[in-house]
Design a binder for these strands. Structure first.
Lengths: 208, 208
DNA sequence: GGCTGGTTCAAACGATCGTTTGAGCATACG
DNA sequence: CGTATGCTCAAACGATCGTTTGAACCAGCC
């Protein structure tokens, strides 16, 4: 196992970057502060000095990415929500595309995997943190889905959104077998992925 | 935190039962052998005596459930595969219903959550174990999907199966907000869940 | 220079981890 | 009876964990 030393940015940023990588690879429990600080090229005590504890570091890893991600989602949603010509595709694109761009960004490519781990670990305190800080995002999207799918009962709509969420989390965390081919560019692959996800989600949400 | 002592069955079975519960609750790393053996009401050394190591215990937890689960899936698939009147619904039911029955079984209710954790943890050795022992199941189902969806290209089909898998794993591990209402029986709820999953999967697989 | 506040450092803390040990116990067989 | 055999037990092993400590460093300011 190579010991990668990240030497750019402040100590805090180097810790956050290394934490994202190692949390994605080994999980929150599996990644130790000693591995993490070694990879970041900082002293072991720096984590507790700058973040207070390992748990607070985990929260900061989420906050750094999710603040930007959900802001872009809401920004995209605001442009189309409530309008008369809005389609399901538009709403789904507003939700999916910011996540796809993040997940294909160099520095954030592993974050969706970290997020999927957080879902799989039924850690109550982490779920509460996510719900408190970002629950309003899902609520706004749900409201717009309800407007565009008036024929669905509330339980029926929740069911479908739940299943779509599972599919997207699964896909964006790179669980699947689908890999980018060598002969297509990053940009083209991202667009193909977005099209697949959106068409799939539209079919799953709107079937009779 | 209550310390539950399971006193039925052999030492091996008690360990397996307690391991399933604790692995689902705290993850494979998070659940310690001391918590586990205390919950099972057995001595700490019993795990290494009967299973050799904690990793081997993890494999046995999977083997015990997946052997039965996938046998029932293949049995159900064999009854319909290749026949002329077979529908997508039939194939999906063969895949989903055995898992749903397991996930709502008293003694196996937490196993799907354990399975979802295994997906989220990108542990290579565990993935290799699952692929070696149960990869042929997914291959048989994929072949039948390909037969019933001849209009889809191979990459397109793989994409859709991947997304359906994500949705089902998500739903069956109980991530979502959908809970059984108090006024519907266990059996009715299971049937409703199966119908939701199957209709959703049909729509996701077969949309134009 | 001296001093201060923020930061980094090596070292140690107590706790908990998976695993091993060797004695003790029970049942079955000669 | 004696003695294997399979299993359980308390205790300990070394390793690793998150966290804390107190000294060292290092800018900027008087």
């Amino acid at each position: 196992m190579p010991l990668h030393v990240n030497s750019s940015g402040s100590t805090k940023e180097r810790i956050l970057g290394a934490a994202e990588v190692l949390f994605a690879q080994r999980g929150f429990d599996g990644a130790s502060l000693r591995q993490l600080t070694a990879a970041a090229g900082v002293n072991l005590a720096a984590v507790n000095y700058h973040f207070g504890s390992k748990d607070k570091l985990v929260e900061e890893v989420f906050r750094r990415r999710l603040d930007a991600l959900n802001a872009r989602r809401l920004e995209a949603l605001a442009k189309i929500a409530g309008a008369s010509g809005t389609t399901l595709e538009d709403v789904l694109a507003a939700y999916i595309r910011p996540a796809l761009e993040l997940s294909h960004d160099d520095s954030g490519s592993l974050f969706m995997r970290v997020l999927a781990r957080a879902f799989a670990e039924h850690d109550d305190s982490l779920r509460q943190f996510l719900s408190e800080n970002y629950g309003h995002v899902m609520r706004q999207f749900t409201a717009e889905f309800a407007r565009l799918l008036p024929q669905l009962s509330k339980p029926e709509l929740y069911w479908r959104i739940d299943l779509v969420t599972g599919a997207l989390t699964h896909a964006m965390s790179g669980f699947g077998m689908i890999q980018r081919k060598h002969d297509v560019s990053e940009q083209v692959h991202r667009e193909q992925t977005a099209q697949h996800l959106i068409r799939f989600a539209v079919a799953g949400l709107s079937h009779p």
